[in-house]
Every structure is written in structure tokens, then in C-alpha cells.
Nucleic acid binder design. Structure first.
Length: 272
DNA sequence: CTGTTTACCTGGGGGC
DNA sequence: TGCCCCCAGGTAAACA
């Protein structure tokens, strides 16, 4: 499940070689992946270069040299990676991008087809994040802003941290990893956090995300980097998918339950 | 307006 | 071997 560290890893790798080459062609094999008019997107992208690549939360923005932007969201099983130009594709590969003077093509593969590409004008791009009510990115958000956003929403902390309008970039894996490190129960009432707890929570969020980026993300099932490699943060997980294993802090067995409709992994002793 | 549920999809695993 | 059902979880839309 691509969350902030996985998307950041892909963006960092794309930045290395994507902007240098003009896009010469796009093949689409499953149109619903493109949320905008397919022909318009092709028209605005083919023959142009990507001049900048941005990430906000789990969204990727490709800024084109004609002031248009392509926004990409990988959702659950989306993959964006390089392959040899002549390599055969499988039934889950929905888009192929070809480039001038490049022996590789960029593929979009997505088993569950939840992800998507959207073409935005310059004006739509500046409004996009605001319209979707997406908060500041988890790596950039300040403590005062995080506090302010937390005040807006009541509920169990697990659900609040998954809400992209409170903090952008966390998903199910990293919320569980943050909560076990903070020794906070996923059921904890977010309105009852003290000032010190909120401050510590934000510090841990940033620290866990940065540590995961250094390991190129967590590969549990589908995620791969743009260079086709698996992440390595799954070796550092303390809670997610660790049910039945001893808590690294107290030895109590990690349990799995459901909170806010999500599979939730926690230490019943540390996170009361 | 708020919180909850469902839809979007496919593959994998358990039960029988 | 195969069929059925449930589960995985990010987001939008429908719902209560």
C-alpha cells in the first residue's frame, strides 16, 4: 500500500531521469485509469517534457513544460516503474510512456485498478489540493498547524491520523507503526491528547516516515520502487502484520483487531 | 454537518 | 481441484 514513504521513494527515483527526455508516446490499455479525457491528456503530454515532479501526501504531480500538470494517485496497488522498451507487458499494465533517446519505458501497473491519472490546467493545479481538503504534507506540517487540524476532528486517534485533511501522507501501515512507538492505543480519544502528547506524536510521525524513506518504503505485497526494487522497511515493522509476535518493548504478543473499519495491529500492554 | 457505510477491483487464503 | 466467501485498504460518493 503506497503511503508517503513509498510515494516519496518513487518520486525521488523519477526525478533522476524523467525530466531529461521528451515524451514521444503513450499507450493506454485500460481507459478508466485516465480520469480526464484520454485524447486531451495525450495531446497535452505527447511531444512535451516533464519539468518538475512534486509530491503532496500520497499524490504525485508531474509538471509539464506547457503549464499543464498530470496528477497521479496509486491508491492500493498502483505501480510506476521503468522497464525495457521492448519488454512484454502483462494484463495489469494499463499505461506505457515512451521517451525520446531512451531505451526504457515507464509503466503504470495496477492490479485492482483503483489508481488514476488526471490532467489539470495551471489554475486547476493550484486549486486541486484545496478543493480536496488535503492538509499539509506530514513531513512539512508545523506543530501549530497539526494542533489546529486536530481540534477540528473528534474520534479515535487511529481514524484521525488516517484522515488526509488532518495530516497528509499516513496510511494504515504507518499509523499503526506510529501509535505503537508512542504507546498510544488506537482507540485513544484524539481530543484528550495533552500538548506534550501531540508534540511527541508529530515528532514520531516524521521520524517514522523518514526512517521508512531511508529504507525505500515497506513492501508487503505489491509496492515496488520506480527502479523495480522492493522496500526494506517491512524488516523494521513493530506492529503492522506482526500479530502473534512479541512486542519489541515488553514481549507481550501483538494483537490484530478492527478500528475505524481498518485492520489494526497493537500491543495490548504498551498501548492501553 | 457529521460520522458511517458502500463502491470501486483483483488475488489470495480458508473452509469444505 | 474447485467453488464460495471474506479480506486487504485509499478515496469518493452515497447514506443516515
Amino acid at each position: 500500500m503506497p503511503e508517503l514513504p513509498e510515494v516519496e521513494t518513487i518520486v525521488r527515483e523519477l526525478k533522476k531521469e524523467l525530466p531529461a527526455h521528451k515524451i514521444t508516446g503513450i499507450k493506454n490499455h485500460y481507459s478508466p485509469i485516465i480520469k480526464s479525457d484520454v485524447n486531451l491528456l495525450k495531446k497535452k503530454v505527447i511531444g512535451h517534457k516533464i519539468i518538475k515532479i512534486n509530491r503532496h501526501g500520497k499524490y504525485i504531480f508531474l509538471l509539464i513544460d506547457n503549464n499543464y500538470t498530470v496528477v497521479i494517485h496509486l491508491r492500493m496497488t498502483g505501480q510506476l516503474f521503468w522497464a525495457a522498451k521492448e519488454a512484454p507487458i502483462d494484463k495489469h499494465t494499463h499505461l506505457e510512456f515512451f521517451f525520446a533517446n531512451k531505451k526504457k519505458k515507464l509503466l503504470y501497473r495496477d492490479i485492482r485498478k483503483f489508481g488514476g491519472f488526471t490532467l489539470l490546467t495551471e489554475k486547476e493545479y493550484t486549486e486541486y489540493i484545496k478543493n480536496k481538503k488535503i492538509a499539509e504534507d506530514a513531513l512539512k506540517i508545523s506543530l501549530p498547524e497539526f494542533k489546529k487540524n486536530l481540534c477540528r476532528k473528534k474520534g479515535v486517534i487511529k481514524a484521525v491520523l488516517l484522515d488526509q485533511s488532518i495530516i497528509a501522507g499516513l496510511g494504515n501501515i504507518y499509523v499503526d507503526e506510529v501509535l505503537i512507538r508512542e504507546k498510544l492505543s488506537p482507540h485513544f480519544d484524539s481530543q484528550k491528547l495533552t500538548e506534550d502528547q501531540v508534540s511527541s506524536l508529530l515528532k514520531t510521525i516524521k521520524q517514522v516516515l523518514k526512517a521508512a524513506i531511508l529504507k525505500k518504503g515497506t513492501t508487503f505485497s505489491d509496492y515496488i520502487t520506480a527502479n523495480g526494487k522492493k522496500g526494506e522497511f517491512q524488516l523494521k515493522l513493530k506492529a503492522y502484520q506482526q500479530q502473534g509476535k512479541p512486542c519489541c518493548h515488553c514481549g507481550t504478543l501483538i494483537e490484530k483487531t478492527k478500528v475505524a473499519g481498518r485492520g489494526t495491529h497493537f500491543c495490548p500492554n504498551c498501548q492501553k
